[in-house]
Every structure is written in structure tokens, then in C-alpha cells.
Nucleic acid binder design. Structure first.
Lengths: 145, 145
DNA sequence: TATTGTTATACTCTATAACTATA
DNA sequence: TATAGTTATAGAGTATAACAATA
């Protein structure tokens, strides 16, 4: 008898992520945000980064890609970039008040989005899902053995 | 006592999906594929679609976006488009032999990728994860109540 | 008029390579 | 020379709007 088609996890994950990602995009767009901007804001609020390179790593993008987003965010008035007097090669990125307010606005949208996604899930299920996703990410991140 | 910070599921999912998606991209690229092409091939192999519109829906993209990919796939020799004699507005999309072979090549890569992702997971865990992801996607797909 | 699909155009995210400025 | 960051350029994926063909 044919084995019940093991659901291709990659396909399922890709599909779920796409659906959820698009919904998240819409949620953020409604309050004037986007996923990269949100990720960068989180990284900036979470902890101080020694350099933009480090910030780019935290967000998971290349330096040039980060520059691209920082340009947009600076133009939008979310942040300022100033050279570090100690080492003028390094640029210090700082959120403006407007950047702070934007962070909170996006955070509210993200929380609402999360709440919607969690609907009908128990705390245990959330914990399980989070743990499984983390392990899955590790499997894919680790250099092949 | 402070509740242990509930991990923002959206962020975790987005991050995992990005990581896994990029890894999947690389795996498919190594054999000359991409995620949209792979999704379209799956949709074509899985069942007959009445129209490109239906095919686009199955893949989760707009009609014009599908046309864009079909153009590339036709140029690459993966498929042919011919008008349905019954209703000449409708285009019949059919895989060529090369398209079939490409499907199998990408399938092998996708299976290998899946195997890698599943590493260390029990069957039960996979089942659980798949079920949770499905429910999560539903929450996000359903029009707000 | 309605439906199916294509073309034209543009936007976002991403990347690599070459460059500038500092050290 | 090496490091931090930017600029220039390009490519992939997606979308909307206008259009052509067919019914």
C-alpha cells in the first residue's frame, strides 16, 4: 500500500511562510512599515551594535542592502547617521523621536498580527511550534557535515 | 513574576522562513531551478488546471506574474502553451519532456533539502509541525471575522 | 460586455563589484 | 594595506493597469 505522502516540509514551510509573510507585509504596510524596516528597528532597539556590518548581520542582510534601507529610513526621518569621533570610519545609527514612535506603531501592528496568528493555539502549542521552528532553522543554517 | 517573554511568533516564523527559504533557493539553484518555477511545476504535475488563472491561484500569484514565469519557462523549453480549440481564450499549458525531467531533478533536490531540514526530528514531530503550520496559515488566510 | 491572458511598467528586496574615507 | 561604509548596477519576484483576443 502506498505510503501516505509525507508532506514535503520545505514546501509546506515555504507556503506557510509566504502566506503569513504577505499577511504580515499588509499589516505593517497599513501603518507605514515593511518587514526589513521592522527588522532593522528591532535590531536597533534590542541592543547597541558596534558597526553597520554587525547590524546587517543581525538583520541577516548584506552591508550594501542595509545601506539601501538606512538611506530610505534616514530620508523618512526615522534615524540619523553620524560618524563616530573615536573612529570616523564607523557610523553611529540612532533613532529619532519619530523613529521611536514608528517602532512602537509597528510593534503594535506586529503584536496584533501575532495575536491573530495564534488564534486557537494553546500556550503549549506555541512553545512547541517555536521550538520546532528553531531546530528546523538550525538544521538549515549549520554547514553540511 | 513576569511571564517568560512569549516569543513573537511572526518574527520567529519570518526569520525561519527566510533562512529556510534562502537555503531552499540555493538547493534549487544548484540544479537550475527556483521556488516559483518549482511551485509551478508542482501545480502542473499535481492536477490539470482549467485555466492559467486557476494555475496562478494554485501557486498563489497574480496572473501577470504567472505569465512572466511561464514566458521564462517556455523560453527555457520546459513547457508549451497552445490555445484550447474548444475555447480559444484559454491557453493549455503542457510540460515538455525536458520539463518533466526538470521536474524530477528539482524534486530530487527538494527531497534532499527536506531530508536535511528534518534531521533529528521524529515522525511525530514532523506531523505536529506540519499540523501547526497548517493551522497557522489558516488563521492568516481567513478573512477577519 | 465579460473573460482569458499578455504587455508595459514599476516597485521592493536583494546582491556583487567598484569606489571613498578613514585608519 | 585593511576596514567601514556607500554608490552603481543588476537581477529576481511581484504587482497594477492597460491592452488584445475571444466569447
Amino acid at each position: 500500500m502506498p505510503r501516505p505522502a509525507t508532506p514535503p516540509l520545505g514546501v509546506l514551510l515555504a507556503r506557510t511562510a509566504k502566506t503569513a509573510g504577505q499577511a504580515f507585509d499588509r499589516a505593517l504596510a497599513e501603518v507605514g512599515g515593511s518587514q526589513p524596516v521592522w527588522q532593522i528597528l528591532i535590531a536597533l532597539k534590542t541592543r547597541r551594535h558596534a558597526s553597520q556590518r554587525e547590524l546587517a548581520d543581525a538583520v541577516g542582510i548584506q552591508g550594501a542592502t542595509l545601506t539601501h534601507h538606512l538611506n530610505g529610513m534616514e530620508t523618512a526621518g526615522l534615524l540619523t547617521r553620524t560618524r563616530d569621533p573615536e573612529n570616523r570610519r564607523v557610523h553611529q545609527v540612532e533613532l529619532t523621536d519619530y523613529g521611536e514612535r514608528t517602532f512602537h506603531r509597528l510593534a503594535d501592528a506586529a503584536i496584533a498580527h501575532d495575536k491573530r496568528m495564534r488564534h486557537g493555539f494553546t500556550d503549549d502549542e506555541i512553545t512547541t511550534l517555536a521550538a520546532l521552528l528553531s531546530r528546523l532553522a538550525e538544521n538549515v543554517t549549520q554547514p553540511d557535515p
